[in-house]
Design a protein around this nucleic acid. Structure first.
Length: 273
DNA sequence: ACTAACCTGTAA
DNA sequence: TTACAGGTTAGT
């Protein structure tokens, strides 16, 4: 579900409520949602710790606790982190409840793909999947040169490369298709066929689209909600995602739908070359 | 470089 | 009943 703009929105809305609060109790309703430690020690480990800050890396949420412990949360397709100011009865798909000094946070996930991993904070730097991620697309170190370098000499479609979190962190099916539309480049093109000008256009499009997604508080095409249970409204600005067979908003041509890198892909064959 | 697997829900 | 869904990983 959440891609970079959605995870960033969850980060912001959650941080507003829980920063500096102590975790007083853990309820592990579905213990498999938590990894990294034996189930019974998870509660002991996390209970009594204070939430210091919440960071984000790609689609991962990093909840920093006291004494160098980090919770790494990934929502996969349908995961949610909800904050409630008062006691809330767990819902059908709630897997973990964090009771805080003030209110509580519920981790829920219909499809049970999402996970919360507990690791010592130093291990985030080395020894976790985080260190293998590609660059953060909205940071100033991400330049057109970096994008070209990340593509390297791979023989991959743009679609496959941009979905690969080791190439660039944070893009998923929605924002890849939207970025390629904005750049005017076909998702089927090989990464090794782009001119310098096209690399620049794509770099610019990725940053513009992701920032617009954050500004709109994400895309609630289906299940996504922020920590307050609110929808995002980027759906209104989608040009291609979920619009296969409909007319292009720019030129009117019927949008193509195909399967690329295992994912449904939509693009305009007139606007994107 | 595809495909299946992990799950449940919804829509065709 | 079947296909498909904002993701990732482990298998051919």
């Amino acid at each position: 579900m959440p891609e970079l703009p959605e995870v960033e929105t969850i980060r912001r809305t959650l941080a507003e409520h829980v920063t500096d609060l102590k975790i007083e109790e853990i309820k592990l309703i579905w213990p498999s949602a938590v990894i990294g430690w034996e189930d019974r020690s998870f509660e002991a480990l996390v209970t009594g710790r204070r939430i210091q800050t919440i960071d984000r890396r790609g689609k991962y949420l990093l909840i920093r606790l006291d004494s160098d412990l980090t919770l790494i949360a990934h929502m996969r397709m349908t995961g949610r982190l909800n904050y409630y100011a008062e006691y809330q009865e767990p819902e059908k798909h709630t897997h973990v409840v964090f009771r805080l000094e003030q209110g509580e946070v519920h981790f829920s996930d219909v499809r049970k793909f999402g996970r919360i991993q507990v690791i010592p904070t130093p291990q985030c730097i080395s020894g976790s999947t985080l260190c293998k991620l590609g660059p953060e697309p909205l940071e100033s170190e991400f330049t057109p040169d970096v994008l070209r370098e990340r593509f390297g000499k791979k023989k991959l479609s743009l679609k496959a490369a941009l979905l690969d979190q080791h190439v660039l962190a944070g893009l998923g099916n929605i924002y890849v298709d939207e970025s390629l539309f904005k750049a005017g480049i076909s998702p089927e093109r090989g990464v090794d066929t782009l001119s310098e000008e096209e690399i620049c256009k794509l770099h610019q499009a990725i940053q513009t689209i992701l920032q617009a997604g954050i500004d709109a508080q994400g895309t609630s095409f289906r299940d996504y909600r922020d920590a307050n249970g609110e929808k995002g409204f980027f759906e209104r600005e989608l040009h291609v995602y979920g619009r296969g067979g409909e007319p292009c908003k720019v030129c009117g041509q019927t949008l193509e739908r195909l399967r690329l890198a295992g994912r449904t892909t939509v693009y305009c064959s007139r606007c994107q070359k």
